[in-house]
């Protein structure tokens, strides 16, 4: 679900005024927006011939700055008993989502990220994060984070959001 980090905490406003971090991310996001596509379509699955023996990513997945969260807007499941790609105990992962395209600085690739919400409990309340890069209004349901994505779940109650890697984005 969406919202408003700057909005709930004074620190959020400070974040928005600190153009360094956000500015960097925005430039990055601006370069990446458009590289994304419709869910499950322009996605290249992991290349078995890729050189590194082990995929790499870096950063703190409880931080709003974490690379996967470029288009997120909600509570980070990493702070709620889940992780960047798993739901907290006793919740239910929404099968339908919005997507973003984020750049993994550790391997230089762009990835399609699926922001599946975890549902069935009230708002986690921790680590509210709004990045919104590539977010579009609800007339683009595939790219909007301003709606409750607890759709297709038994409960409509929004708890937190994950950021699941679903593929490498095609280069334009």
């Amino acid at each position: 679900m969406s919202l408003l980090d700057r909005i709930f905490e004074k620190q959020a406003r400070q974040v928005a005024q600190q153009s360094s971090r956000r500015g960097m991310l925005k430039k990055l996001g601006g370069a990446l927006v458009g590289a994304a596509a419709v869910p499950l379509l322009p996605v290249a699955r992991a290349d078995n011939h890729a050189a590194p023996a082990k995929p790499v990513e870096e950063g703190d997945d409880t931080s709003c700055d974490y690379w996967r969260y470029c288009a997120i807007d909600g509570f980070l499941c990493s702070c709620c008993g889940g992780s960047a790609n798993t739901c907290p105990p006793g919740t239910e992962m929404s099968p339908v989502t919005w997507i973003g395209t984020c750049h993994n600085p550790a391997d230089g690739r762009n990835y399609v990220i699926s922001y599946n919400d975890c549902c069935g409990k009230s708002g986690c309340g921790a680590c509210l994060c709004m990045r919104d890069e590539g977010d579009r209004p609800p007339y683009r349901p595939d790219k909007t984070n301003d709606i409750n994505w607890c759709l297709g779940t038994s409960s409509a109650s929004y708890h937190c959001s994950t950021a699941v890697v679903v593929g490498v984005a095609f280069e334009e």
Binding site: S2, L3, L4, R6, I7, A16, R22, G23, L25, K26, G29, G30, V33, D73, M130, R131, D132, E133, G134, D135, D146
Partner: peptide, 8 residues
């Protein structure tokens, strides 16, 4: 700057 549209 993409991503600032919800900030107010």
């Amino acid at each position: 700057t993409d991503g600032k549209h919800n900030e107010g």
